[in-house]
């Protein structure tokens, strides 16, 4: 036992330990990857459906999701892009890569994103031939980190169907209440744009005065979570504005009037 401390023994133990440990981890990572990926996709699909109010008790998320049409949109032009394969699209790498993203000057970067990808996925739900809902991924900084979610709009591109966050680091019970079903329910029916196309939707401090004219653009703030509430306002203003889905929404509106 005394010879444990020789250089040779030390090296042998160190190297064989590393080999065993790395083999174990690689094995589990490879074996479990499919399950993990499936979980992630399912979670996202779940939130997308939930934002659009399409979730149904007892029916598999993946089956329900088949009714959703996924498209890649060029945020610059606001047109759908056919060249990028949906399976290849990854928000994180696109927003980091200088060739597929732009740096945001601080005056427009209200959601504190630093960089914005030039392409995004949007989800369309058709009832027969008619557009029923459009679901837009949104994200922005809250108190502790980036809040990522989905905003579902009605085909008038104005009325909110739902807002759902799938990833955030807000304080449970305070900012974390953005997941509270009661708060999420307030969003339904609110409007995001004024008649001349300005983004008006915002989360205010305290409760909304229902009798005021502007109440349809305002959402009750979360008590004890002003910064989170402001973060939600900012991320919506950003993504619905000219740097976000503004061009896409303009195009889609034009398309609709042409079709009619």
């Amino acid at each position: 036992m005394n010879n444990n401390d020789t250089i040779k023994k030390t090296l042998i133990v160190a190297i064989s330990l590393c080999l065993v440990c790395s083999a174990l981890i690689s094995f589990s990572a490879v074996e479990l990857r499919d399950l993990q990926e499936a979980n992630k996709t399912l979670d996202k699909q779940n939130k997308i459906l939930s934002a659009a109010g399409l979730l149904e008790e007892g029916i598999d998320t993946s089956i329900l999701f088949e009714s959703i049409n996924t498209k890649i949109v060029n945020l610059e032009t606001g047109l759908f892009d056919q060249n990028i394969n949906i399976a290849d699209y990854e928000e994180g790498s696109f927003s980091r890569n200088p060739s597929t993203s732009i740096e945001l000057p601080s005056d427009v970067d209200i959601a504190l994103l630093k960089r914005r990808e030039n392409f995004q996925t949007v989800y369309l739900h058709y009832e027969g031939e008619l557009l029923n809902a459009i679901i837009l991924p949104v994200r922005g900084y809250g108190l502790w980190g980036t809040m990522k979610g989905y905003l579902a709009l009605e085909p008038n591109f104005k009325t909110i169907i739902g807002l759902e966050f799938f990833d955030h680091k807000e304080t449970p019970g305070l900012g974390g209440e953005i997941d509270n079903p009661k708060w999420k329910a307030i969003w339904k029916g609110k409007e995001v744009y004024s008649d001349n196309g300005d983004v008006l939707i915002s989360v205010i401090k305290g409760s909304v005065d229902k009798s005021s004219n502007n109440s349809k653009y305002k959402v009750d703030g979360l008590s004890g979570a002003t910064i989170t509430s402001n973060g939600v306002s900012n991320l919506l203003s950003f993504w619905l504005g000219d740097m976000g889905y503004g061009p896409l929404i303009d195009n889609m509106k034009l398309q609709e009037t042409k079709d009619v």
Partner: peptide
Amino acid sequence: NHIPTNIRIIVQISI
């Protein structure tokens, strides 16, 4: 019984 004393903490941490 095979852990060399001078790297024992590293061995434990790795495990």
